[in-house]
Amino acid sequence: AQQMKQKKKKMSDEEIIEKLRGIVTIGDPNRKFTKMEKIGQGASGTVFTAIEILTGMEVAIKQMNLSQQPKKELIVNEILVMRENKHPNVVNYLDSYLVGEELWVVMEYLPGGSLTDVVTETCMDEGQIAAVCREVLQALEFLHYNHVIHRDIKSDNILLGMDGSVKLTDFGFCAQISPEQNKRTTMVGTPYWMAPEVVTRKQYGPKVDIWSLGIMAIEMIEGEPPYLNENPLRALYLIATNGKPEIKEKEKLSPLFQDFLDKCLECDVDKRWSASELLKHPFLKLCRPLTTLHALIVAARDATKGH
């Protein structure tokens, strides 16, 4: 039985690699791109900046060693979703290459870095928080309309351009739902940002992304998600038992912002607002221009350099 199971998994790995060969571009990317600097290290791979030799355009390349990937099907899913879901608030997928066991995914590069640096190193005002929430909600409305759940919304996966543009990235854990199977149960995401229905292993749908957006809004207020000082297991327990997290000095926030947070961080999924509904929330009328994020991006970069 063990051998059969092992054989079944083995076959599916080969099937996945075969499928990947049908998707990727044939050719050696080392001859098309000059790798520059390592800018990120995640569980699934390493991210570099690179210059496309032909055009001189700066791109980001995510490099993954397939043999080290426990769930290869997620990689195929990531490429297909990014390739078929182009949107101004989604990092643009450009190309992909298979070099032996190494998969290269070439994407648009945003030099402003991730939102995490901005939330941990600077203070954002409500107008700026509203603007970022609006941009992410636009991406989520588009994805949810196309039956895609991101499942890992957090500041680390929001990239910024120097002009203040805001884009969602890392579709390595997203789920494509269908009318027959519009719910999922596998626990996927980052513990501190997980919705209660995910933590308690109930069936969940697109609104898990809305909860995570609410937690990300707390990041933009406090610099980190609730319970980050706890270990992940205890954080899951606290999410399951406390439901909506406490926000320190919540009374200092405007009533509109407090209501926006309440609509995102609603434990009853049916009562929790959708992306489309939230895009009409009056809090988003407080949006300041995205260009105001430029100063925060520069300040965050100087601060992280200083570390």
Partner: peptide, 19 residues
């Protein structure tokens, strides 16, 4: 500056080792 613990920010799929 606010503290960031990289390990805690990793994404989990299914049952992580610590569960």
């Amino acid at each position: 500056g606010k503290r960031r613990d990289r390990r805690k920010r990793y994404t989990v799929v299914g049952n992580p080792y610590w569960m």
